[in-house]
Design a protein around this nucleic acid. Structure first.
Length: 892
DNA sequence: CTAGGGTTAG
């Protein structure tokens, strides 16, 4: 009896020794080989079905990413599995990403009436969170409460995390607040939830609260808060965190360092980002990806590609690396390298990925290879909305709008239309100025419920404005719940473009009262207003803002500045901006050419045109309008005709009606009326009012009344909506003394519901704008102005001036005609300028219509008699009057 | 039980 006891004790002792040493080697197994060896020992000893070893084995196989083996171990015990074994298999499946299966096992376990314990739930909750299975999540939460496990710390943490992943931060916070006990993981779960849902402010708030409560942050805390600092561009808090990382020694953690790297890129702080990367002891794929992507975000695309090459040699890139570098290829229009990366992808055995394919579509589109884009698109096994949108975007870039609409139709049927699709279709409507299409898209937007999306609304505001429906634009604007900076910029530009400067200014004020800071785009929107009023002072102020913002060398901004200065009478400043620009596009050159044109500098315009071609910028339709116009205003007939030829022969551009109008202008302005008429008769397009208008105004200034009358008839046949042409025709009849015809035209303007633009001129003196209408009598200093004009009249008569009464368009007596000429708005503005500026100093006035011939002559006299340089900007161009001559050389 | 990097549009 005693021996047996001894023996049994010994046996137990041996067993105990075996157990503990086996358990130890199982825990410390670090290779699959070791694990398999220990597994076979366990089998040999018949311990495989023991609760302890089966559970351990299941967990261990899960650690080695071998859920199949976990499953086979569990399978052998499953009929009689206890809660420990069930917990092990559920945890194993969860850790290997098999969430649906994990939940399935939880279901089976409950069916078999195995009672879960507090170790069961964290994994189950995890699986619900990962699958975003809200319904199941709530059921599990109820189970937890029923079992009285509601105050368990680990389960509570898992629940906070789950609700955060569902995007329900309110629920997550409620859960968090209800926890009787909290640790750093609870705080981390809450903070990372806010961070992942991009609630940056809350993430930072709760981080600071955790610090107040004396919680010591760990690597998880830091890597959740860093994105918030980046997202808010909160440099101060970011740097504090960086210090903290160094102080408590977290910089060895890859995730933390990667977070710092990403944050510094968001701050555009390349030097720090680089330092972090080079000082990292351990780097992983994410580190490289963050670096490569960061360089791309800072538009350092070449460097980003170089880094990719460096990485390939020492580290296997993943799909995210590939997509980052493909993006860089797209921006660089580097088709060759793009194809290389595509090949690398095919050979590297990357499994097909929707995002990667989407970027391929975009990359090929940016590189101009539409067919390659389409091939990728066609071969995609599953396409998401982004795929379709990217493909549509390709066709938009290639101006193939038919295909855009075709794809959009299919998307509509497949219910794939999202807000981005709508924005792109709105942009198509804008580009085609197609109101009907725009309205159709607007209807779809309402039907699909995208009408609360800010970007969509901004696009609608822009679309309606650019389609000429400013009232619809304002209606959309007013219905919007929130206005962001882009909204304001869009509506300001819309008002300015529609000519409602008062409303534009009011919008700017409202924007400022709502605390929205203007940016480069705001400024771009109001520059045309300065151009219109020729307010160089305000233009310069805005230029100052642009300079402070650092956008001066931005291409569209530079272009707008050149235009503004040229329209404000300072060709010199235009040239200065032009010279400072490092990159010049076709618009830059074209704007500069038309600037030269407006100042009658045809020779310089031609020089710029040659320089432009020499630098490889290809002229477009607008460039040719500008250059022919410039020739026309300088009397360079041969050169202008040569450009018209070149446009068709060298650049394969089909001349549009505006080009024909320019050529008619070019010929007739130089007195070649017959040639101009022949040209009109030979043109393939049907001449419209603009063509006849060019010819007519030239006839009038050259006194060719016979042709003029014939042309006036043709103009009236056009039934144009532009009152300018009616006025032009009526002028001809006025000169001929055919007052019945004049009255008839006035009547027909009224009958068509049109209004003649009243002539007005203005001048800016000491930051104030003074506006004068024709025949105005009620303005400051009216008496003085009238007296001065009388004195000047006397002096002019002595110099031999005779009033040109043909410019009076009313059937009145000659004396009265003389008075009417004196009441022309430009003359009032000039007299006012003479009175209110220092003697001998130059000044500038503006007129909304073309300057009248008699006033042109009078201004020449005034510049001589009063010894003043007077710059006059009319609707077309500049006239610089000096010593009795005008810079336009009477070409205007 | 908790963390990081990628795509289309105004």
């Amino acid at each position: 009896m005693k021996t047996t006891t001894k023996f049994s004790t010994l046996h137990e002792a041996t067993n105990q020794f075996l157990y503990s040493s086996l358990s130890q080697s199982l825990s410390s197994a670090s290779t699959t080989k070791q694990l398999h060896r220990i597994h076979s020992i366990i089998i040999t000893l018949g311990l495989e079905k023991s609760s302890f070893f089966s559970g351990k084995l299941i967990s261990k196989y899960a650690q080695f990413k071998d859920p199949k083996s976990s499953f086979s171990v569990f399978h052998q015990v499953s009929p009689t599995a206890n809660v420990y074994q069930w917990n092990s298999i559920i945890r194993a499946l969860t850790h290997n990403g098999l969430f649906t299966k994990a939940l399935g096992f939880y279901g089976k376990m409950r069916k078999l009436d195995v009672l879960p314990d507090k170790c069961t739930f964290p994994s189950v909750i995890n699986s619900c969170a990962a699958l975003v299975d809200i319904e199941m999540g709530q059921v599990v939460h109820e189970n937890v409460l029923k079992m009285g496990l509601g105050s368990d710390l680990y389960i509570g943490n898992a629940l906070v995390d789950m609700y955060a992943r569902f995007g329900c931060m309110d629920e997550a916070l409620k859960m968090f607040d209800g926890m009787p006990e909290r640790d750093v993981v609870s705080w981390n779960s809450l903070i990372s939830g806010y961070s992942a849902n991009r609630y940056w402010v809350e993430a930072l708030k709760f981080y600071n609260m955790s610090r107040m409560e004396g919680i010591m942050p760990d690597s998880f805390t830091v890597s959740s808060v860093l994105p918030a600092c980046g997202g808010l561009v909160n440099v101060k808090e970011g740097e504090l965190l960086h210090c903290l990382v160094e102080k408590i020694g977290l910089h060895g953690d890859v995730v933390v360092s990667n977070g710092l790297l990403s944050m510094y890129f968001k701050f555009n702080r390349l030097v720090e980002a680089r330092r972090i990367f080079y000082e990292m002891v351990v780097r992983d794929t994410v580190s490289w990806n963050t670096l490569i992507c960061g360089y791309s975000q800072m538009e350092l695309f070449k460097e980003s590609i170089e880094l990719f090459m460096l990485m390939v040699n020492r580290f296997k890139p993943d799909l995210l690396t590939i997509t980052s570098v493909l993006r860089a290829c797209g921006h660089l229009r580097d088709l060759e390298f793009g194809k290389f990366v595509h090949e690398y992808m095919k050979k590297g055995g990357f499994q097909s990925d929707v995002t990667a394919d989407n970027i391929l579509i975009d990359m090929y589109a940016k590189c101009g290879d539409l067919l390659a884009s389409r091939e990728v698109f066609n071969r995609m096994m599953c396409k998401d909305s982004v795929s379709w949108n990217s493909m549509i975007n390709c066709y938009i870039q290639h101006l193939n709008y038919d295909e855009v609409l075709k794809l959009a139709m299919i998307m509509k049927v497949d219910m794939k239309v999202d807000s981005v699709t709508c924005v792109m279709l709105l942009s198509v409507s804008t580009q085609l100025a197609d109101k009907e299409l725009g309205k159709e898209v607007h209807c779809d937007i309402i039907k699909l419920g995208f009408d609360s999306d800010v970007i969509v609304n901004n696009s609608m505001v822009d679309m309606y404005a650019k389609c000429g429906l400013i009232n619809d634009s304002l209606k959309v604007f007013e219905n919007m719940k929130t206005h962001d900076r882009v909204t304001w910029n869009t509506i300001v530009a819309a008002c300015v473009q529609s000519g409602d400067f008062t409303l534009g200014l009011r919008m700017i004020n409202q924007m400022r009262t709502e605390g929205v800071m203007p940016d480069a785009a705001t400024v771009l929107g109001i520059l045309p207003m300065c151009s219109f009023f020729a307010s160089k002072r305000q233009g310069k102020e805005i230029h100052g803002c642009i300079f402070r913002f650092g956008f001066e060398t931005d291409v569209p901004t530079g272009n707008a500045l050149i235009e503004m200065y040229s329209k404000c009478g300072s060709l010199k400043n235009s040239i200065q901006v032009f010279d400072r620009m490092k990159v010049r596009d076709v618009v830059t050159w074209t704007t500069m050419i038309s600037a030269y044109g407006m100042y009658g500098e045809g020779g310089k315009a031609l020089r710029a045109f040659e320089d432009m071609k020499a630098t490889g910028v290809v002229p477009d339709h607008v460039t040719f309008v500008a250059i022919i116009y410039a020739c026309s205003h300088s009397g360079l007939v041969e050169e202008g005709l040569a450009c018209f030829d070149q446009m068709q022969k060298d650049y394969n551009l089909e001349p549009r009606i505006e080009h024909y109008a320019c050529v008619v202008d070019l010929l007739s302005r130089s007195g070649l009326i017959t040639k101009a008429e022949d040209f009109i008769n030979s043109m393939p397009l049907k001449p419209d009012a603009s063509i006849w208008g060019s010819l007519l105004s030239a006839c009038r200034s050259s006194g060719n009344i016979l042709v003029a009358e014939r042309v006036a008839e043709r103009i009236l046949e056009q039934k144009s909506n532009d009152t300018g042409y009616y006025v032009l025709a009526s002028n001809v009849y006025a000169i001929l003394g055919k007052w019945d015809q004049v009255r008839m035209i006035r009547k027909s303007i009224r009958a068509r519901g049109l209004k003649k633009d009243p002539g007005c001129s203005w001048i800016e003196i000491k930051r104030r704008l003074y506006v004068f209408g024709t025949g105005d009598k009620f303005f400051e200093q009216f008496e003085e102005v009238n007296k001065l004009l009388g004195i000047i009249s006397g002096l002019m008569a002595k110099e031999g001036y005779v009033a040109d009464l043909r410019y009076v368009l009313h059937d009145v007596e000659e004396d009265e005609k003389r008075d009417m000429l004196c009441g022309h708005s430009e003359r009032l503005a000039i007299a006012f300028g003479l009175l209110n500026t220092e003697p001998g100093t130059p000044f500038q006035i503006m007129k909304n219509l073309r300057v009248c011939g008699d006033c042109h002559t009078v201004t020449k006299y005034i510049s001589m008699i009063m010894q003043r340089e007077i710059l006059v900007r009319d609707a077309n161009r500049f006239h610089l009057f000096k010593d009795g001559t005008c810079s336009c050389g009477d070409h205007w």
